[in-house]
């Protein structure tokens, strides 16, 4: 422990400007790797819910098969299907109605395909990383959109209720409906929104697109 503490201190001495605003303790270099892992995990889905649901379904299925086996060994009548009938039924697949087997088979295959896609796709969450010195920060896209809407409506001189913003992985689309008779200055809104986005330092970076409705709204 003592050695790590010493190394921490030397790391701080070596990088005296790591906290550029000078307030408080600088961040040890050892945090960087930790933060990278946390940031990655916080912006991607763990796929826990899907895995748990599947595991429960598999447990129920296995428990049922197990119960049928025990019942068959005891010689009692089966709950739904005896193990021997399961075996015979699988082999006798070709004698079953073609339409039903084909439909069920394709349905099961499609579910399987969806699961495979879920397993290999990145599963990004609607979140961005915010640049920070001391901590790792993740922000919901919703919060970014809400803040942009406030600044856009202030800059464009429209009612906050007439500004709607949607933030996706790389784009923020600002949609303003001007009050009838009061034109909205697109350049001013663009500048305000871009300055806000720049000040957040989002990762991945988000670029703004401003849409101003053709027709104004009366009394807004």
């Amino acid at each position: 422990m003592t050695t790590t503490l010493t190394s921490l201190d030397t790391a701080q001495d070596a990088r005296p400007d790591s906290a550029s605003n000078g307030s408080g303790t600088p961040v040890p270099a050892s945090f960087t790797r930790l933060y990278r892992r946390i940031a990655r995990r916080e912006t991607h889905s763990p796929r826990s819910l899907l895995a748990i649901v599947l595991a429960v379904i598999v447990i129920v299925a296995l428990a049922w098969v197990g119960t049928e086996i025990v019942i068959a060994l005891l010689g009692a009548p089966a709950l739904l299907v005896a193990p021997a009938d399961m075996f015979a039924g699988t082999l006798g697949l070709v004698d079953a109605p073609v339409a039903i087997v084909a439909t069920a088979g394709i349905l099961v295959a499609v579910i399987g395909l969806v699961l495979v896609i879920a397993a290999v796709s990145p599963g990004r969450r609607a979140r961005h990383l915010l640049s920070a010195e001391r901590t790792a920060i993740v922000v919901d896209n919703e919060v970014i959109a809400s803040a942009l809407a406030r600044h856009a409506s202030l800059a464009g001189n429209v009612d906050p209720d007439n500004a709607s913003v949607s933030v996706s992985h790389r784009h923020a689309v600002v949609h303003l409906t001007p009050t009838s008779g009061i034109p909205v200055d697109r350049a001013v809104v663009t500048e305000a929104v871009t300055r806000q986005l720049d000040s957040y330092g989002l990762r991945p970076p988000v670029s703004a697109r401003i849409q101003i409705a053709e027709n104004g709204r009366i009394g807004a």
């Binding site: 895995a51 599947l54 070709v94 399987g112 699961l115 896609i117």
Partner: peptide, 28 residues
Amino acid sequence: TNRAANRLFILVIGLTLLVVGAGAAATV
């Protein structure tokens, strides 16, 4: 949470369903 295990489990179940379903459809 072991995320790799989650994804591996989902992948195995998905592949199993894909093979069984496609196999059943192909059989008939």
